[in-house]
C-alpha cells in the first residue's frame, strides 16, 4: 500500500526531495503571507472604525470579499495547501469541506430567513413590533433612560 503510493508519487515526479522545503514555506513566503494578511485585515477595520460615510452594502462587500481573500492567503501561505500535497488528498478534503460548509451556511440562511417571514404567528409579529418600537425608542433617546443597566455601564467604560 505504502509502496504503491511511493511509486505513484515518484512516477508523477511530485514528491522529489528537492521540492520539499518549499512545501513548508520559507521566511519569504511567511512574510509575504503576513504582509498580505495585514493589508487585508487593516482595510475592513478601517472601513468600520473610521466614520467615513459609505453605503452599507459597499462596506459589507469590502468586509466579506477581503475576509475571503485573507482566508485564501492563509490557506496558501500558512497552511501550505497545494493540489499536490499528500497525493492531493489534502486539497480534496478541503474542497469537500468547503462544499459542505457552503450547503450548511447558504442552506441555513436561505431556509431560516424564509421561515422567519412566512411562518411567524400573528402574536409574535405584534411582539416583534413592540420590540422594534422599543429599539426605536432606545435609538431616539441615547442617554439611556430605557435600558439603564446596559447603556449606563457602557458609558462609564
Amino acid at each position: 500500500m505504502s509502496g504503491l503510493t511511493q511509486e505513484t508519487s515518484n512516477g508523477g515526479g511530485f514528491d522529489t526531495p528537492g521540492q520539499e522545503p518549499s512545501s513548508h514555506g520559507s521566511y519569504k513566503s511567511y512574510i509575504t503571507g503576513f504582509l498580505l494578511s495585514v493589508i487585508l485585515t487593516v482595510i475592513p477595520f478601517w472601513v468600520v472604525m473610521s466614520d467615513t460615510p459609505m453605503h452599507l452594502g459597499a462596506a459589507l462587500t469590502i468586509i466579506f470579499v477581503l475576509g475571503t481573500g485573507q482566508i485564501l492567503v492563509h490557506i496558501y501561505y500558512f497552511l501550505h495547501v497545494d493540489l499536490r500535497a499528500e497525493q492531493g488528498w489534502q486539497a480534496m478534503s478541503l474542497i469537500f469541506t468547503g462544499i459542505i460548509l457552503f450547503v450548511v451556511l447558504a442552506g441555513s440562511i436561505w431556509v431560516m430567513y424564509h421561515l422567519h417571514t412566512n411562518m411567524m404567528p400573528p402574536h409574535f409579529i405584534n411582539d416583534a413590533e413592540s420590540v422594534s418600537a422599543r429599539e426605536n425608542a432606545r435609538v431616539a433617546a441615547p442617554d439611556g433612560e430605557t435600558t439603564p443597566e446596559t447603556v449606563g455601564h457602557s458609558s462609564h467604560e
Partner: peptide, 8 residues
C-alpha cells in the same frame, strides 16, 4: 483562519 471569519 477561523478568527478571520469571526472578526469579519
Amino acid at each position: 483562519l477561523i478568527w478571520i471569519g469571526v472578526f469579519s
